[in-house]
Design a protein around this nucleic acid. Sequence first.
DNA 1: TGACATAATTGGAACGTTCCAAATATTTAA
DNA 2: TTAAATATTTGGAACGTTCCAATTATGTCA
Lengths: 356, 356
Amino acid sequence: MTKARVTVIDIAKAAGVSKSTVSLVLQGSSLVNEGTRSKVNAVMREMGYVYNRGAANLRQASAKSRIIGVVVNDLTNSFFAELAVGVDMVVQSAGFVQFLSNTSESIDRQREVVASMREHGISGLIVSPARATDAADFKPLVAAGIPVVVVVRNLPGAKVSSIVSDNRAGMMSAVKHLVGLGHTRIAFLGGFPDTAVFDDRLAGYRSGVETAGLDYHEELVIASAPSRAGGVEAIGKAIALARRPTAAVCFNDAVAFGVCDGLRARRLEPGGDFAVVGFDDVIEAQAAVPALTTVSVDPQGIGRRGAQMLLKQINAGKAEAETVTTAVRLVVRESCGAGKTAPARTGKSVKIETGR
Amino acid sequence: MTKARVTVIDIAKAAGVSKSTVSLVLQGSSLVNEGTRSKVNAVMREMGYVYNRGAANLRQASAKSRIIGVVVNDLTNSFFAELAVGVDMVVQSAGFVQFLSNTSESIDRQREVVASMREHGISGLIVSPARATDAADFKPLVAAGIPVVVVVRNLPGAKVSSIVSDNRAGMMSAVKHLVGLGHTRIAFLGGFPDTAVFDDRLAGYRSGVETAGLDYHEELVIASAPSRAGGVEAIGKAIALARRPTAAVCFNDAVAFGVCDGLRARRLEPGGDFAVVGFDDVIEAQAAVPALTTVSVDPQGIGRRGAQMLLKQINAGKAEAETVTTAVRLVVRESCGAGKTAPARTGKSVKIETGR
DNA sequence: TGACATAATTGGAACGTTCCAAATATTTAA
DNA sequence: TTAAATATTTGGAACGTTCCAATTATGTCA
């Protein structure tokens, strides 16, 4: 039924030229005569020709596949969905196409999808690595000359480019803001301690506390799963402390929402009786009640930048591993107790200058 | 620097067999001797061989590329992100890999990405078509024997499989519920009238109204962009009616949120002074205040089913266009004024039986 | 042992493109 | 008019796999 594929040879025959000429037209070469070009194009259109990239890639360097792989650990999380959209934007307009896969934090899944992508000849990879990813996991890729850009979570030790948000500065500013509101016992809640992001955010918390002239107390640092449930758990422990804190910065927004839940369950009003600050500024943050004061990180921007960086490396043939940290800004809403008069959906935003 | 690719010929040489044998091993053929197989596998491992699917696809039918294309119109919308995750789940575990692209409702973008995917030799396509997509747009694909499954929005006239939620039944149940709460003037707010989904939902609204023995008034149907802003606009018009409604079913959750905003701006309490019901049950619905009563459609489930349907068709070589409508259920929360005593985050759910 | 079946293996010849070196057509300069 | 330069076109030979038909090894039966 379905007639055989139309190939450049068919086109050549129909247009009365050689397959080489057709190929030249396909590549937009300036060598070919204008008349010939348009005739060939016309024939292609009318015969319904579709370019076979697979065949082309076979002949060309695999760097020309124009496929870029994107692997994220949780697409359900709108943070990563936005990231993927950012990547897609620049990738698409550069004429590339994106393989997107979800690992659900499974390191095996991640290995599988990356292997699969390699088989398909991706020209580059953007990855937000699953937790506990081994830095050496991407070694073979870069050895094969396939650029890799790590986003969101960095991979200390891996010789790849990375682009992460300025977690340290973000937490510092959150703490500073709370101190400015008069808080002196501020907890750090949530997150898994074995991740680089956790370390950065905790470090930011610590310097924030210390530059404010306050003491750093280890008991105020309470780790938990970086989820809503984890937040409930962490605030429970915080409330149980002998000298209980009056405010908390949270590992991320999910934790912050959980903290709010936990507070309410104890008849405490988030934003009123206890100040809460999140991190990430997911879309739900502004619609929540109370609207969440949080550190905004623009995942879409990270996606765009990561993609640009990757494309640059692909075009350059081979590029140095560079690492970029993107600016973040504190968005003050209600949950910190500062913005009670402001309407829920807007938020004063405080720009933070960050190192590069 | 980067040494040339390792090919099956290299493997063959190193293992002391022919390339054909290596190929057989690659395909898991039972023809090859166990000893030979393991030796070849060992050599592959130690030489760091990576399969070149492009080359293989060149020889085989393109239906074997094991790439499936997914195009959605708005990945930022968590509804579609969930959908993509659902697709990815089944696609991944079937050993396929997913090309995902975002059209942002641009029909040109859509054409581009679909063309690009075709060039890459996708084995099948799952698409949530951009608004005003021409049913004929996917003709060439199916003519080339590439199965297409349309999800979420149907494409009347296109000879492709589709899987949509039961918009009619969902709206009917929403209306029925509001009638049960005593409302007699119920508006239908939001959505673009030129879409099939709009038609279905409106039809559901109409039958809901009529089976309740109420009159259908055209003035109560107020179209608008299917967005938060559109919702604000629509409720403004509704409130301005001489005989104003006391409740509304909305085209989707975004509209419903906008409606709540608009009500508050007029000092009306959603759920108290005016009942609001949404459609989709996006994740924000349960965390919002008031928690949104809405029709839940399980996008991830749609994604999974769509992917299964597609894989089935790919394996079958060629399959009939079948169309499935998935069940939806009304989740009663606060915004309809019924669940005021229940905690915000849970919600009684009412299962609706739908035609097939 | 021969005759046959069965199990493994194997060289080409595709697949649809790009690249190269070479051929041919057209201009230009003298 | 001719040589040289330039513009255009063109047949193969790759690329890394799979498939086919054919070959060789191994086993079985009488």
